[in-house]
C-alpha cells in the first residue's frame, strides 16, 4: 500500500465523498423526525392509499411499527444502496481506468511502486471510503435518533443493518473497480460497471413490485436480504459472508488482471 497515493486519492475525491455523505445524512435527518410512534396509524393510512406495486418497488412494503424497522424500510430499502451506487460508479472509474485513459497512470508507474501495490491501494481506498461513509451514516442515525426519539432505536439491529448495507455497497464498488481494471477506456469501464449495477437495481425494483417477478429480486444482489426482516432478527450471516467472499474475489481478480495486462500509456 502506498501512503502517498492514498493521500492523493483522499485529496482528489473528498468533494465527491462529502456530497454523497451529506445527502445520506440529510435523508437520515429528514426521516427520523417523520417517525412518530403515535401517528403510525396515520402513516399506514397514507401508505394504503398508494398502489401496493409502487410501494413494493420502492421497498416500502412492510408494515412498520418501530423506529428501527421504519428506517430499515424507508432508508435502507432503496436509498442507502440506490444512491451510493452512483458514488461507486464514479469512484470506481476514477481510481483506475480514467487515469489509464488520460495517460496519467504512467506517472504512478514511473515511481518505484509495483502495479500490485498501486492497484491494492486504489482498491483499498474504494473500500475504505465506503467504510467511512457508513460509519458516519450510522453515527448520524444514532445521534439523531438519540436526540429526537431517545431510547427508541435498536442499536445492535441498526448496526447490523448498516454493516450489511455497507458490504452490499462494497460488492457494487468492487464490480465497478474490476471493470475499471479490465477496460482501458474510461467510457467502457464505467459503462460495464454501471450497467451491471443498474441492472441489479432494476431487477430488485421489478421483482419487488409484483409477486410474479419475485424471481428477479431473488437473483439481484440488492434483493438477497430484506432490511426489515434483518432488523427484526432474521439471520443474514450467510449472505454477509457471501458478500464478503465476493468482495475478496473481485478484488483479487482486479489485481491479477491489472498486474498482467498491457497498458496503452
Amino acid at each position: 500500500m502506498s501512503l502517498a497515493l492514498l493521500k492523493k486519492d483522499l485529496k482528489q475525491n473528498y468533494t465527491l465523498f462529502l456530497i454523497f455523505l451529506s445527502v445520506l445524512v440529510m435523508y437520515m435527518l429528514m426521516m427520523i423526525p417523520m417517525f412518530n410512534p403515535d401517528d403510525i396509524n396515520e402513516l399506514l393510512i397514507i401508505l394504503n392509499m398508494m398502489p401496493i406495486e409502487m410501494l413494493r418497488a420502492m421497498g416500502f412494503s412492510d408494515i412498520i411499527t418501530d423506529l428501527t424497522s421504519f428506517l430499515a424500510s424507508w432508508l435502507y430499502g432503496m436509498l442507502m444502496f440506490g444512491f451510493p451506487m452512483v458514488y461507486c460508479i464514479i469512484l470506481g472509474n476514477r481510481l483506475v481506468s480514467k487515469m489509464i485513459d488520460n495517460n496519467s497512470f504512467a506517472y504512478l508507474l514511473s515511481t518505484p511502486n509495483s502495479r500490485v501495490k498501486l492497484i491494492v491501494t486504489q482498491g483499498f481506498f474504494a473500500l475504505f471510503s465506503l467504510l467511512l461513509l457508513f460509519v458516519l451514516v450510522f453515527s448520524s442515525g444514532l445521534l439523531f435518533s438519540h436526540l429526537i426519539h431517545p431510547g427508541l432505536l435498536d442499536v445492535s439491529a441498526f448496526l447490523k443493518l448498516n454493516i450489511m448495507t455497507m458490504l452490499l455497497n462494497m460488492v457494487i464498488i468492487m464490480i465497478c473497480f474490476t471493470s475499471s481494471c479490465i477496460f482501458n477506456e474510461s467510457r467502457r469501464s464505467s459503462g460495464v460497471g454501471s450497467g451491471i449495477a443498474v441492472t441489479f437495481l432494476l431487477m430488485n425494483m421489478l421483482g419487488s413490485s409484483s409477486l410474479d417477478l419475485e424471481i428477479l429480486k431473488k437473483m439481484s444482489l440488492y434483493g438477497l436480504y430484506n432490511p426489515v426482516d434483518l432488523v427484526r432478527g432474521s439471520n443474514v450471516t450467510g449472505i454477509g459472508l457471501f458478500f464478503l467472499g465476493l468482495i475478496i474475489l473481485l478484488f483479487t481478480i482486479s489485481v491479477l488482471i491489472f498486474n498482467k495486462k498491457r497498458l496503452p500509456i
Partner: peptide
C-alpha cells in the same frame, strides 16, 4: 524506476493538482 527518469510522449498529469503538489507527490511516491 529507482534510477530511471521518464518523459511520456503524451504528458498527462493529475489535473486537479497544482504544479507544486504534483512535484511533491512524485517525491513522496519515490
Amino acid at each position: 524506476q529507482r534510477f530511471l527518469g521518464y518523459i511520456p510522449g503524451e504528458i498527462s498529469f493529475f489535473d486537479d493538482m497544482t504544479g507544486y503538489e504534483f512535484l511533491q507527490f512524485m517525491h513522496e511516491m519515490r
